[in-house]
Amino acid sequence: MKYGSKELESFSYPDGFQRFAGVDEVGRGPLVGDVVTAAVILDPDRPIEGLTDSKKLSEKKRLALFPEIKEKALAWSIGRCSPSEIDELNILNATMLAMKRAVEGLSVQPDCVLIDGNRIPPGLAVPATAVVKGDLRVAQISAASILAKVVRDAEMEELDKQYPQFGFARHKGYPTKVHLEAIEKYGVIDSYRKSFKPVKLVLEKMVAK
């Protein structure tokens, strides 16, 4: 089964299925914002060149592939979990739920879902396989990783416009030194994941004052 990406490592698709959805997530590590997932069913008759792990692509290349994936895919969907859901469920369970939401949002039903990583979200209505390093091996997962990355990065840039003092456009919410210093200085806005340790520590200090 070919989907047009020479950059991908070899992968043997599970037997007995025709229509595969790839699922990936972006944003498990950041301190702020939603964890964003995507599900993509590619069209084998409309190959997309250059698919690979979104982290290995330049921002320019991701932005070029983003509309092409949406236009050529048989179906695509974005799923997410909010900071409050992450705080309630924990980041792993919230990621699994966001992946399930992405699959359920597809306008076309896949025969099999290929999940990046080593876990399968509970409650999926179709068979699923976990694929370690799937974004480097499976075109559908690569496409999903690109959609999720572009969507989440855009949301961080929007948040940066509202709160430029935090530098979200630069670090995308990850706990860099500059970001941690900004939280210490400016406090915590609603978009933060309050169960994450660096945020929790700042909130505890604020209460103690």
Rank of each mutant, 00 (worst) to 15 (best):
T95I: 07
Y3G: 05
T37W: 10
A64R: 13
V23N: 00
I48C: 07
A128N: 05
A208V: 09
K172S: 09
L51P: 07
G79Y: 06
V126F: 00
M96A: 09
S145C: 10
S84Q: 14
I78C: 02
V126N: 00
K6S: 15
D15G: 06
G27K: 02
E104M: 02
C81H: 01
E181W: 10
E71T: 05
N90A: 06
T52Y: 11
P164H: 02
K61A: 13
G105H: 04
A143G: 03
V151I: 14
G134V: 05
D160F: 10
V207C: 07
Y186K: 01
W76Q: 01
S12D: 11
L65S: 07
V103K: 08
L89V: 09
P14H: 05
K172H: 04
G187Y: 11
I78Q: 02
F20Q: 00
K149C: 14
R119L: 14
G16A: 02
D116E: 11
L92Y: 15
Y174D: 00
V151P: 10
S58T: 15
R19M: 07
R152H: 08
M206V: 11
R119E: 06
W76H: 12
K70L: 14
L31H: 04
V26Y: 00
A38G: 08
M96G: 00
L106S: 04
D53T: 06
L136G: 15
V178W: 12
A102L: 06
L42I: 11
K197M: 14
I115H: 01
A182M: 13
Y13T: 01
G134D: 11
Y186F: 15
H171L: 04
A208D: 11
A75I: 12
D15N: 12
I69P: 02
A73T: 03
A125G: 14
K209I: 14
K172Q: 01
